[in-house]
Every structure is written in C-alpha cells, then in structure tokens.
Computed example of a mutant assay.
Amino acid sequence: MSSSILTPAKATLSFRVSQVPVRYAGRKPEASGDPKKDLIRRILYPSNLRNKPTPVGTWRPEVGHLLQRAIPSKQAHETIERAWNLHLRHTRWKREAELARKFECMRKAMEELEKIDSKLYMGANKVEDPRVWTAAELEKSSQLRGAEKRAFDWRIRGLFPRELRLPTDTPSRNGWDYQWKPLGESV
C-alpha cells in the first residue's frame, strides 16, 4: 500500500513532457535506404524538439543575440527596415506601371478594333453569363448521353475545352497501320 502513495520528494518531481507533436506519435521513422535522402530530409524537416535551434528558423533562441551582434543599434535596424520598405515600394510601382502599360496597349487595340470592325468589337466586349445556355446548346445537350453529357454540362463556356485532344506525334491508339502507303507510291 505504501508503494502506491507518493512521497513528498516524488510529488515535487516535474514530469518531462515529450515535445514531439502528437501527429507523429504513431509513425515509425521511414528508412528510405538512401543516406543522402535521409540527410536531406533531416535538414529540411528537423524534429520539433525545443531544446536546440532548427536550421529552417522555426525555433531559434539565439536570434536576438545574433541580431544584436549583426546590427548593434536600433537606429541601424530602423534604417534597414526603411530601406527594405523603399525597395518594396519601388517594386510595387514598377509592377503597377507595367500593368498600366499593358492596360493602355489593350485599350488602344480595342479602339483600333472598333474602328476596323464594329461587329467584332461588340462580340469581343459582349458580357456572357456562363451559366446560361443558348438554344443550340440545349438542343445539343438533349442529344448527348452518359459521359459526353456530363462533360458537356461541366464545361465552362469561353474556356479552352478540356476534352479536346491535342495533336501529337505519338502513335495512334489503334496501333500501327501496316497497310499504309504514302500518296503517289506504287507497290
């Protein structure tokens, strides 16, 4: 009975809780057999133990000290922050200028299309609801069955058709045609 009662000395001992996440508790380490892959995996995905720094920066207790050594003053740190924000601002301005240039080119092209052919211009600017079907599409869908009907129903108008087979230089699905002869060649 005395063995089940904790003594005061044992009651004050703190229990060390494992710091490994629960999601990895049931997994056994995978041995890929290749030591290079294991080394890369350990470097990229370090353990989540909090007693040492990890190389990818998920937990680094010495960061404050290292920053203090690299950038000794708050003024230098703020100067670097301002320079970085200035760089981001200039990058944003360049991106916005490039988008404005592209938009202006598109606007000029649309004005030129309007001058050349107003019918094509109206067709290019027509707003269509992809959920609404035309009478021709309804007629076509009523004639289709099975997978073809589902593919037709799922297609979003205006997008490139997913079921279109691209022309390639691969052999046909039926195999090799041994009786084929080029045009103009006689036996």
Rank of each mutant, 00 (worst) to 15 (best):
T91R: 14
R92F: 01
R92V: 04
R92D: 05
R92A: 11
R92N: 06
W93R: 10
K94V: 00
K94N: 06
R95Q: 11
R95W: 05
R95Y: 03
E96K: 10
E96I: 13
A97F: 01
E98N: 11
E98H: 07
L99F: 08
L99P: 04
A100N: 11
A100D: 05
R101G: 00
K102Q: 12
K102E: 09
K102V: 01
F103D: 13
F103I: 06
F103Q: 12
F103H: 08
E104H: 04
E104W: 05
E104G: 03
E104N: 12
C105V: 04
C105N: 13
C105L: 14
M106I: 02
R107A: 05
R107L: 03
K108C: 06
K108L: 11
K108F: 06
K108M: 10
K108I: 07
M110F: 14
E111K: 06
E111Q: 15
E111N: 11
E111C: 05
E112Q: 11
E112T: 14
L113G: 07
L113A: 14
E114I: 03
I116T: 11
I116Q: 10
I116N: 07
D117A: 13
D117N: 15
S118G: 09
S118H: 13
S118E: 14
K119G: 02
K119L: 11
K119Y: 03
L120G: 00
L120F: 05
L120Q: 10
Y121R: 14
Y121P: 04
M122G: 00
M122L: 13
G123S: 08
G123F: 02
A124F: 06
A124W: 06
N125H: 12
N125T: 13
V127K: 14
V127E: 04
E128C: 08
E128V: 15
E128A: 14
D129E: 07
R131N: 12
R131Q: 07
R131G: 00
T134C: 01
T134Y: 04
T134M: 05
T134A: 05
T134E: 00
A135N: 02
A136R: 07
A136P: 02
E137Q: 15
E139I: 08
E139W: 08
E139P: 01
E139M: 11
E139A: 14
E139T: 12
K140A: 14
K140Y: 03
S141V: 08
S142D: 09
S142L: 12
S142T: 13
S142F: 00
S142H: 13
Q143R: 15
L144Y: 08
L144W: 03
